[in-house]
Amino acid sequence: MLAPVQDTSNETRLARARRLRDVEERRTRRFLLAPALLVIGIFGLFPLTISMLYSILTPGTYGGVTWKLSGEAYLQFLFERDIFDGSLSLSSTYLQIYGRSIGLALVATIGALILGFPTAYFIASKPREQRNIWLFLITLPFWTNLLIRTYAILLIIRDEGIINLGLMSVGVIETPLNILYTDGAVFIGLIYSYLPFMVLPLYASLEKLDFKLVEAAYDLYANRFQVLRRIIIPMAKPGIVAGCILVFIPGLGAYITPELLGGGKKLMIGNMIALQFGSSRNWPFGSAAALILMVVVMAALLIYVRNAGKQGAHHG
């Protein structure tokens, strides 16, 4: 047998040094991440564990829970228990609430995208020194509490609000349009509340768009619409996806907007969950409903990220 080769060539030593450095860098990164992990652990995972636990317990008579394991909360989501013989029958009440919430959040997301895209493009095409002013204006609403802003919308769209009074004084309509306490009002409120979350990521990706690419497409016989479809939108895709996620998820769980503008007549998920911890005094069901929402959203995100990851691999 040959003597073992002493592998001390320069390259090997360099590679070893590089590996060592990488390990050290990883250690530093982990250290930097620690505070955030701590906060998420205490204020994120801990309450989540409580929710999980409560969702499999029995509701207490005056709220809270009694320590008796039960799957009732999850059954209640899909089934209705007969008061007399206790038999289960399928019920779509809660599925409908979820369906309506997802629908409203989707429509609001699309609305925000349609409004936000031209806005973001406008800002990105401004000279650099002007962009900050526009971005500041976009974020300006955050300086006021959401509740107050929602009341402001309520004042604008109610029967005696500016819109109706204005339209009536001009003579376009004779009786006030019924906007407040409809899905339309919730839609307006959601778009208004979450539009900045759409504009900012869109801006971030459009700002990086090399305008020469647009010129090149025009040069290659693409008209305005084709440039938008074939060049600008594909290049802005990461921003579009980020914006849609940032609007859709909080829109789905929105509480204040549907409560004030929807008048609580038609429940959205957020209000339904709040109800369980309030007048319904069914904490386990509220916990279960919240967890189901979370699982649905996370599953959707995971599927997306996996697909995006595959595409990203092509990007190199």
Binding site: E215, Y218, D219, N223
Partner: peptide
Amino acid sequence: PYKRPVNTVFQSYALFPH
């Protein structure tokens, strides 16, 4: 530009990265 039978090679090439 899209109605002119003229094409351009750009200084930065401006190839479509996607």
